[in-house]
């Protein structure tokens, strides 16, 4: 009788402890996908962004907090699963905008430690570990993108007082070797052996980033800055373009 009870207990514990985290990760992943696609759709149909700010961003913040806690809880005992949770936490923190994007770096650091403790480090879970390494740069681009949007939406042209900042912005995104494009591109080059979809994902992001600076360059030109400023920005844009083309990444902008 005692043996039977012990066996049942052990079995139940294993079942509960063993399956709770995977089931929770699947649940959070699904929740993330719903929230993110919902946010994109809302952004497309509600240009005033009111719905996004009031509905989806708080949802993403909450999701990010829960996923990060779940990752923290098992980081020591099950780092592989923790990395999965950190992926959800970082993605949702990033897309929550200013509400929680500042946490992305901390999550990335924790994920880095978890990946380092895996049997084959990043290669044990390539998609997640590489994404979590690059996510601070990807999220940083969104911060810069918000600033660009403010500059181009303030009026028909960028005011002369903002020309210098415009140059800095383009440099922060497309400059070499410390710009966002350069850092993400370095990550892209490091993943030659991983899933083609991850490379495609990174390449697509790089194209969007490049197009942001190319189009912003167009707004900048239309604002009639000095020829020296135009040349300076062109150098950065063309540098980014050349590096992407060298990596066979599209620089075609819609």
């Amino acid at each position: 009788m005692k043996l039977k009870l012990s066996f049942a207990w052990v079995t139940a514990c294993l079942l509960l402890a063993g399956c709770a985290a995977p089931v929770e990760l699947i649940k959070l992943d699904n929740e993330w996908a719903r929230a993110y696609t919902g946010k994109l759709e809302a952004e497309r149909t509600n240009p005033d962004k009111f719905l996004v700010a009031t509905s989806f961003e708080p949802q993403l913040v909450d999701l990010s907090i829960r996923a990060e806690k779940a990752g923290d809880a098992i980081a020591a005992s099950d780092p592989a699963m923790a990395v999965g949770f950190y992926r959800v936490a970082a993605s949702s923190a990033w897309k929550s905008g200013s509400a929680r994007e500042a946490q992305v770096l901390a999550i990335s650091d924790k994920a880095g430690k978890a990946c380092a403790s895996l049997p084959k480090q990043d290669a044990s879970q390539p998609r997640d570990c590489i994404f979590l390494k690059l996510v601070p740069q990807l999220a940083l681009f969104d911060v810069k993108a918000r600033e660009i949007k403010e500059l181009v939406s303030a009026g028909p042209t960028i005011p002369p007082a903002k020309h210098a900042r415009s140059l800095e912005l383009v440099n922060e995104i497309g400059g070499s070797p410390d710009g966002i494009v350069a850092r993400v591109l370095a990550g892209y080059r490091s993943v030659e052996t991983v899933a083609p979809t991850l490379r495609g994902y990174l390449a697509d992001n790089l194209t969007v980033e490049y197009c942001a600076i190319q189009n912003f360059f167009g707004s900048f030109i239309g604002s009639l800055p000095s020829p020296a400023q135009v040349d300076s920005m062109r150098t950065v844009v063309n540098g980014a373009k050349a590096s992407l083309e060298a990596a066979q990444i599209s620089t075609t902008c819609k």
């Binding site: 985290a21 995977p22 089931v23 990760l25 699947i26 992943d29 993330w32 996908a33 993110y36 696609t37 592989a80 699963m81 990395v83 999965g84 992926r87 993605s91 990033w94 897309k95 879970q125 998609r127 997640d128 994404f131 990807l138 681009f141 969104d142 993108a145 918000r146 660009i148 949007k149 181009v152 979809t197 994902y201 697509d204 992001n205 969007v208 980033e209 197009c211 942001a212 190319q214 189009n215 912003f216 360059f217 167009g218 707004s219 030109i221 239309g222 135009v230 920005m233 062109r234 844009v237 902008c253």
Partner: peptide, 27 residues
């Protein structure tokens, strides 16, 4: 749970006016 295909977010795609796109391209 870890290895299934998942949705990863894209960086924000900034909407520019047509004029900026044309000038940016030729610039």
């Amino acid at each position: 749970a870890r290895d299934r295909a998942v949705l990863l977010p894209m960086v924000d795609d900034i909407a520019f006016p047509e004029r900026a796109k044309v000038l940016g391209f030729f610039g």
